[in-house]
Write a protein that binds this DNA or RNA. Structure first.
Length: 518
RNA sequence: CGAGGCGUAGCGCAGGCUGGUAGCGCGUCAGCUUUGGGAGCUGAAAGUCGUGGGUUCAAAUCCCACCGCCUCGACCA
């Protein structure tokens, strides 16, 4: 292994820091080396590169299809929110106050070759760059909603938002990010609450069945709730370092925004009533979750459902004649695979050795690679290589590599591609679930709790009956927080039922999910 | 905002203390040999040294100011 690495001309730019060495650096290396995103010259803002954006586009499609299937339509609202409008819902405004970018002028002027803000162009009222759109949307909803016949109003928006974060990380937390925000209005509380649950389940479905990331569904504690919400539900995933990542939220807003924006409707009894609201969103953070859940020390690993390129075909040759024949075969195989609907890349670049191409496609997360050499032409076979396998305990790198490769008769390899992709999609979820469960514990004492998080940590299921101040205590002592108060069926069977709070000893009806978090 | 680091060729960096022709690796371009896990040789092109000022005969290098980004801490999806 060591001697092998000596043969590789690895420069700093080419290498990926192993996860075990520095997980944070590994993540940054993957983002960079898989060409997903770059830092920009604007603090905290990122440039999403084509490969990264293609993944986001696929995610968008999966989500958008589900939004449409559940009766929603898309619309677009302004980037700017008048300050007075944002301030209308007090709790909401206070929640976002510390991270708002504000536009105060509308003009520049050029003086002595220098361009600067024209002090005479000061806006009468500052405009807040939306950190989220509840206020400006509800301002409109007032005009759109008069009677119960106008309800439910089910609208989604795809947009960018800005939250002036102190500290940023590519995809996981950037000052500007892309997301979708659903904003719905309902005639009854029950219907609104149903909507909240429905959309959380849409998110969970995409996380698990599209991204291959298993998630825990639950409620946020009061302290972690969305500013202005009565209930915030979230899905929580576990990254490979054992930390939790909130991957999506769905909020029941009650009548808070309807009241502050004065949105009433005439119900079937002819009475005026405030409408009930929900909002829900996921962001480009999901791309970060995808990376941190599946990727390895060789680069990105993508589930077939989100891979911009499904299959890379590398022709192998020595002579011009072999080059012509293997490349022609690669094109022919590609054409057949495209018939099945796969995005196929034939890597016929000259001057690169096959090994270099293998590494590149692995780095970029392409699920399947097919190698076609002269021997395959003779035998009528294809060498099909999976990007990953589920690791067995104690398995060495060469063994892993061998287990990824498969030599199959040409027709069989092609015919089995849909099943193989399906297997990869499922195994990715399975692999993530195994990893998560290995780092999940049911814990009843603070001693065990401390030891668990001292030794790497993960998800801890503990009984809880503490206050907000008690939550702070746990945060200070262990750097952990309540990720969610799970729905009952999300708790492992061995951990169900009532018990005593791990901190206070008070009776607790059920366990909560505790972890360190991003 | 606090603490560190960085800014020099497309990318990654050295040089800076001790001022004096702008350097290395990768990539790019051309040619030949290679090609089943990161190719080799030969030749070539390519840089306002973050910005502004100062010291000096002379500044990437010393001084002052500014700008920007990254990493780590206090806030958050």
């Amino acid at each position: 292994m060591a001697s092998q690495q000596n043969n590789k001309p690895q420069t700093a730019a080419e290498s990926i820091t192993p996860r075990a060495t520095d997980y944070g650096q590994w993540y940054l290396d993957i983002v960079k080396r898989a060409e997903l995103a770059d830092h920009s010259s604007v603090r905290g803002c990122m440039v999403i590169k084509p490969h990264g954006y293609a993944i986001w586009e696929k995610l968008q499609r999966e989500l958008d299809d589900r939004f449409k299937a559940t009766g929603h339509v898309n619309a677009y609202f302004p980037l700017f929110i008048p300050l007075s409008l944002l301030a209308k819902e007090e709790e909401h405004a206070a929640g976002f106050a510390k991270e708002c970018a504000v536009v105060t002028h509308y003009r520049l002027k050029s003086m002595d070759g220098k361009v600067d803000v024209d002090p005479e162009s000061k806006l009468e009222e500052p405009l807040v760059v939306r950190p989220t759109s509840e206020t400006i949307i509800w301002e409109q909803y007032r005009n759109w909603i008069q009677s119960y016949r106008d309800l439910p109003l089910l609208i989604n928006q795809w947009a960018n938002v800005v939250r002036w974060e102190m500290r940023t990380r590519l995809f996981l937390r950037t000052a500007e990010f892309l997301w979708q925000e659903g904003h719905t209005a309902h005639a009854t509380e029950a219907e609104a609450r149903e909507e909240v649950a429905r959309m959380l389940e849409v998110y969970a479905d995409v996380a698990e069945n599209v991204m291959g990331v298993p998630v825990i569904r639950g409620h946020k504690t009061e302290g972690e709730r969305f500013a202005g919400a009565l209930d915030t539900q979230s899905i929580e995933g576990m990254m490979q370092d054992g930390k939790a990542l909130q991957m999506g939220t769905s909020h029941y807003l009650g009548q808070n925004f309807a009241k502050s924006a004065d949105v009433k409707f005439l119900n079937q009894n002819g009475q005026l009533e405030y409408v009930y609201a929900t909002s829900w969103g996921v962001s480009t953070r999901l791309v970060g979750a995808l990376i941190m859940t599946h990727s390895d020390d060789n680069g990105l690993i993508l589930p077939p459902k989100l891979a911009p390129i499904h299959i890379a075909i590398v022709p192998i040759y020595k002579t011009p004649d072999e080059q012509a024949r293997t490349t022609a075969e690669a094109q022919a195989v590609a054409a057949e695979l495209r018939q099945q609907g796969w995005a196929v890349k034939v890597d016929d670049r000259e001057g690169l050795q096959p090994g270099a191409k293998y590494y590149e496609w692995e780095r970029k997360g392409v699920p399947i690679r097919i190698e076609i050499g002269p021997r395959d032409l003779e035998k009528g076979s294809l060498c099909v290589v999976r990007r990953f396998v589920i690791e067995q305990p104690g398995e060495t790198e060469p063994e892993l590599r061998r287990r990824k490769k498969q030599f199959l008769p040409r027709a069989e390899a092609i015919a089995q591609m849909p099943a193989l992709m399906d297997t990869l999609q499922k195994e990715l979820l399975e692999r993530a679930r195994i990893r998560r469960d290995q780092r999940t514990r049911i814990i009843d004492t603070l001693e065990d709790y401390e030891a668990f998080f001292r030794e790497g940590g993960g998800f801890a299921w503990v009984h809880w009956a503490g206050t907000g101040a008690d939550e702070d205590t746990m945060a200070k002592r262990y750097e952990t927080s309540i990720r969610c108060i799970p729905f009952a069926d999300q708790i492992p069977e061995a951990g169900r039922g009532p018990g005593a709070c791990i901190l206070t000893g008070q009776p607790s009806p059920q366990r909560v999910l505790m972890a360190k978090a991003y």
